[in-house]
Design a protein around this nucleic acid. Structure first.
Lengths: 342, 342
DNA sequence: CTGTTAGCGCTTTCAG
DNA sequence: CTGAAAGCGCTAACAG
């Protein structure tokens, strides 16, 4: 009742060695594709392993080589394309580097810190999203025992980090909206929710400043669909007024836009709306959503790379790596529709 | 140059024991929250572990307990909400069961079989998507040495499987379209690409039969955006004609619909279009896309559960588990728009 | 309640 | 080219 009917389990390197009539050392050698082994030995070992359906035990190897050959990744959750893309980039680079990836989702964990600690137990290094809400000091502690890289987090002097550019493109997209003659523009998103939103808001403010205008306080709401809908209701009810909305992500922008139009407002007529992320829906809605595209996949790959460098001790500086983004103009900002970019 | 500056590395259970002035057994005991340990000992151990920033080595534990405490998951890739949802369900259940999840994406792997084998090396059991394209015999071999559960794959007599219902809902949605008076309905998707598309097509055929009509041959195209666009071009060029399209997923349906409307066709006027998956965009487009919703998250959770049962030897039958889906009616099928469901 | 002592399965010198 | 043997760090009897 303890191990079930695990079929051919219990086959170890010893069984294989015995069956092949060689020593375990030889088995190990051929299985590692290691140095000079006679063709005869190799053949016999491979055959025996095959017949026995031998599956090595990674734990034993890890213990012996003192390496897990695995990267840990902590994501907040997985809805929307952002984290998926990131994960794809991460996994694929990790695989190229011969590393497994063990994944943990922060959302819904009773004891996040405990979970992260446990994760740290079985990997050679850890990458985590800034938005995963891991306490600062936990990060510090972790980083004290194995390499950590922060993705889209607050750069810290002691920890590696890779992020995509926020402030500049936020300023750019905001300026764009301003140049359309909008005068009451609101920023939707909570700068306190994480460094990326914070930096986007900073760009929003900067754009206003360079236009000699004063930026409104941010509308501090979460970035989910329901929050956008709720916000739109408030606008429709006349609680707030604006002629342009700079949203901290597309999900929010899309939800707001949908509800507003249902309520009779026109976009970009009554309101210009722009988002962030360039999700798939952004180019399917009418009007197409003007937004900012980030090379998320690459971000994931770079994180894995960086982690691997640290693990293997390749010397790397700690300068945070920031990768560029680009503004995608469609028509929700007030520009005329054009052939769809993307 | 080999291990970098891994800070407090090298701390083992021995160092902790020494520092706490107890035996390694005691350390192990308190760290496992095990049986009776004096409060004093516990405190000292915890303190020492903390000071030393002790991070246990999972590999050593695994070796000793002969258990990885990890579930492997093989997904084809991660674009779109389907796999993400699945993964979220899987991860969260696994976490509840105290299992880590090590993830592998099939797409882009040079040597998939090899990669899966390697994965098998470090987990107690494996769940994989039917669409991940793992060769039959590899599955068999794997399953010969540790538990395997197939998700949305072809039920096999020997392997556990969990899938969501396909044929029935395909028949239902097709009948729905037929009842709108459509007479030339096409199925988009390649039944040979996997069991789910195959079963959906079977439902499509069944619906025609029970309406005493003959179902058209499937339009064998992949389920991606670009394929939908290309298909729409063909329709616009007059290569094909139809008054309704049953698409094997939403991505396809959405792309076709978009291109067709750009080309001047109306939906559902000229053509009714329905999809599968109920992705986010489905309710944002105009007209809203009629589609089939699957409880994907639950599917993931069930897979993890099932795997765990098998691993722990809880007796479970091999009857494939199939979980129900539901048709979501919006207006792309020809129904009048209504308050948005969902 | 605590310490001693065998391993867990694999890699890796070190001799031959 | 091959085998013997010494661990890797941790858990789990088994004695005290």
């Amino acid at each position: 009742m303890a191990t079930g009917q695990t079929p051919t389990s219990g086959t170890t390197i010893y069984s294989v060695a015995e069956r092949a009539g060689v020593s375990i050392a030889s088995v190990s050698r051929v299985l590692q594709g290691s140095t000079a082994v006679s063709e005869k030995t190799r053949r016999r070992v491979l055959e025996a392993a095959d017949e026995l359906r031998y599956v090595p035990l990674a734990a034993a190897r890890s213990l012996a080589v003192r390496h897990h050959e695995a990267h840990g990744l902590v994501l907040p959750e997985l809805s929307g394309p952002y984290y998926s893309e990131l994960l794809m980039g991460f996994e694929s680079r990790a695989a190229e580097l011969g590393q497994s990836v063990v994944l943990m989702l922060a959302e819904g964990k009773h004891d996040l810190v405990r979970a992260v600690r446990k994760l740290a137990t079985r990997v050679d290094g850890l990458a985590m999203l800034g938005s995963a809400a891991i306490p600062e000091d936990t990060v510090t502690a972790l980083h004290g025992s194995k390499p950590v890289v922060l993705i889209a987090g607050d750069p810290r002097p002691d920890v590696d980090s890779v992020t995509s550019e926020n402030t500049g493109s936020a300023a750019e997209i905001t300026s764009h909206v301003l140049r359309h003659g909008r005068t009451q523009v609101l920023f939707l998103g909570d700068p306190a929710s994480g460094p990326d939103v914070r930096d986007r808001y900073a760009g929003f403010v900067a754009a206003h400043e360079s236009a000699r205008r004063v930026a409104a306080e941010p509308v501090r709401i979460p970035l989910r669909e329901r929050d956008g809908t709720a916000f739109a209701e408030r606008m429709l009810a006349g609680d707030l007024s604006a002629d342009a909305l700079v949203c901290a992500n597309d999900e929010l922008a899309l939800a707001v836009m949908k509800r507003l139009r249902e309520g009779g407002r026109t976009v970009p007529g009554d309101l210009a709306i722009v988002g962030w992320d360039d999700v798939m829906t952004a180019r399917y809605v009418e009007p197409g959503l003007t937004t900012v595209r980030q090379p998320v996949r690459e971000l994931g790959a770079i994180a894995s790379d960086r982690l691997h460098q640290r693990i293997t001790g390749a010397v790397v500086g700690v300068e945070p790596q920031v990768i560029p983004t680009s503004v995608v103009i469609r028509s929700s900002c007030g520009c005329p529709p054009r052939a769809d970019p993307g």
